[in-house]
Nucleic acid binder design. Sequence first.
DNA 1: TAAATAGTGTCTCTTAGACAATATTAT
DNA 2: ATAATATTGTCTAAGAGACACTATTTA
Lengths: 227, 227
Amino acid sequence: MEEKRKHYDISNYEKPLVTVDIVIFTIKDHDLKILLVKRKYEPFKGYWALPGGFVRTKEPLENAAMRELHEETNVEDVYLEQLYSFGEVTRDPRGRVITVSYFALINSEHLDLKARTDVEDVNWFSMYNLPKELAFDHKKILNYALTRLRNKLDYTTATFQLLPKRFTLTELQKVYEIILNKSVDKRNFRKKIKSLNLLIETKETKMDGTHRPARLYLLKKNAPFII
Amino acid sequence: MEEKRKHYDISNYEKPLVTVDIVIFTIKDHDLKILLVKRKYEPFKGYWALPGGFVRTKEPLENAAMRELHEETNVEDVYLEQLYSFGEVTRDPRGRVITVSYFALINSEHLDLKARTDVEDVNWFSMYNLPKELAFDHKKILNYALTRLRNKLDYTTATFQLLPKRFTLTELQKVYEIILNKSVDKRNFRKKIKSLNLLIETKETKMDGTHRPARLYLLKKNAPFII
DNA sequence: TAAATAGTGTCTCTTAGACAATATTAT
DNA sequence: ATAATATTGTCTAAGAGACACTATTTA
């Protein structure tokens, strides 16, 4: 009987804290950027950190991530995916904190950071030029996220979230080049994209400068997520 | 000052419980099997469930998973990988429980289930013939694990963990066929495996029955994990 | 007509997949 | 010899990657 209670009563177990942390990617100024917040309080006061926070008791994990995301940005049309859970015992000096990390891809248009009171500063950083030290194990989380993002490029359409609805093939190619951090042959790239049959060619073009205008495309309404 | 304390004092936050659950795969009797335990206590008393348990306060997540694994089996040489964290609010009727799931691949030799007191029964089940109802959201976790396992087949050597150290090419092919649940052309399979240059041909052969004996191979000592 | 970017096609090499005959062992 | 599994090669089609010229626009 006592043994039975031991197994049934949930309150006997010590509880770690659970947070979510989000790697928010966007492409801005021809660069892969991620959002960081400067911590106003200890621990790691003054350090840049991933946006995140504690999971509320009646809140699904994904909602917690989405809530934190909305607290930082006003964007809709967000692609959000769980990344990995980090559970080193000493990752937070305050005590046992397990974090479930997410990564988000947001459209480079209409970026609009909100004013916040609980952080000292918010900013976009180039993934290729991060602050030397980040709070907690957030550097590790970022590297993990970059690897995942690069892999997704190959076999999913998730990365179209980084572009406006209508985009040119050159813009699409730049997304690939910026994420992979290497250049790609224009002819092979276009051949590949066209063979996947994911895009609709619009009648509009985009002019910017003194040269031939580029055709605008959009992703098919029900293009497969996994190619 | 009060606001500062609010952000610093960890004890103000409500804490969900954190468990680990493990999908332990092996290959036995020409079938893909996973280990389930029959629950002795509520909730889901009498239901089959994934082995797992609460994470201890001073225990890294991966250690918790490894500990649960060792509590069920005596195997060493285990491949263990984090799968996904499930955080639906209502997934455990006792309250908020977030689970970090893992999957493990164990060698089909020397399987030796331990006697346990806190479960009613332990058994291997065919992945293709599971009990109709499982405890919690464990069916969902299992399906997620199967998808992951199938994907890993393509580009990692993780699945060699399912075989003894020395194995025949036919045994290796069977692993592929059982996991993918479809048959594979023998000539193409061997051509592919040989082109990857992962194996060492031993001088020994394996006899079993009245037919030509098969050459034994082993995975190269420092074969890459990701191919 | 100069400057700047958009847009396009061919060749080669590698890889995936279809497909069937011979080799070796024990009884 | 028979039964049973091991072992091996060729052909074709599709895709990846190297590579350079023409088209269209504005100033």
